[in-house]
Structure formats: structure tokens, C-alpha cells
Amino acid sequence: MTKNIMIVGVGGQGTLLTSRILGGVMENAGYKVKVSEVHGMAQRGGSVVTFVRYGDSVAEPIVEEGQADVLIAFERLEALRYAHFLKKDGVLIVNDWRIDPISVVMGAQKYPEKIIEKLERKHTVYKINGMEEALRLGNSRVFNNVVLGMAARHMDFSLQEWLDVIEKTVPAKTVEINTKAFMAGYEH
């Protein structure tokens, strides 16, 4: 058995931290894990993808088209961009948030309408406005843990396993707010 998870978003949204938390949880549960990240150019506001694969043995470090069991998208347009990476029975977790690419900012292209409704026709979709929750907690940056909290409900690990790894992975000063953010998503 090998499970494939993808995290997609906009450069600077912190996909890296999320993939590291995911990797940590799976490693603690005794699986073989590979995490593949993106550094460099793509982090400057571009579309970014990271992969987490776990199971009894893992060869390639990436997840390919049609192979993802879970797709976590930090932004709607990015959910749409990568939805074809999902397996037919894969699950899509989407942060109900919009960031305009520059062509849209400049009015040269339109941001697609009703993305989530479109995706729901084909896939199992769970949505949450992680940013709203994060702002309520007082720090927009922790929105990704809200989204991760919701995703965790659809994966096979206990709440405690998640919280242990969050505590070890995020900067010490932010453990409390990140845990709160995670719980907000988990209990959503």
C-alpha cells in the first residue's frame, strides 16, 4: 500500500510547512515516507506543488497525474489546476480563498467562476475558509493549519498524532495558535 498526498497553493503560502507536518505524522506512524518540495523561483508567488507519499515502501518521490488520494489546495484556482492529479475516488480539501494571478489583476484574463461547484461535480470536495478562521484567531499566517485540520479528518491518523507533530514542527512561540488553528479545521 502506498498513499499519495499533494499540497498545492501559491508560493509564499507555506505549503512546505504543511508537507513537513504531514511527513512527520506518517513517519511517526512507522511508514516509509518521501516528501518532495519546491524551493527557489516558484516560491515567488507562483503556483507551487509539494508531494507526500507514504506506505510500506516508496520509490518515486513525486505524485503523478491520476494518482493522488488526497489533494489539499490552499487556493481555489490552484485546486482547479491540479484536480486532474486526483484518483477517481480521491478527496479534495480546498481552502475557499482567492488569490488573483497577475493576468487577472491586470484584467487580461478572468478568474474562473464557481470553481468549487465545478469540482464538486467530479470529486469529493470538502471546503473551508481557512483564512477567515485564521484572522479570527489573530494571525492570517496560520490558515494552512486550519485547512490541514480539516484534511486530517479524512486521513487515518489520530488527533494526538497530529498534535504531537505540530508541536515539534512549528516554531515554539507559535505552537498554541497553530494548534488552535488546526483544531478549528478539525472540528469544522
Partner: peptide, 18 residues
């Protein structure tokens, strides 16, 4: 035959200055 869905035709998101 992998029967893959096409990548959607949507606005690209190239990297930009912060």
C-alpha cells in the same frame, strides 16, 4: 492507456515580484 484528464485551460500563475 492511462485515461488521464486533460490539464484545465485556466489562467497561469507564473512567479512574480513580492
Amino acid at each position: 492507456d492511462l485515461d488521464l484528464d486533460e490539464a484545465p485551460q485556466i489562467p497561469p500563475r507564473p512567479p512574480i515580484l513580492c
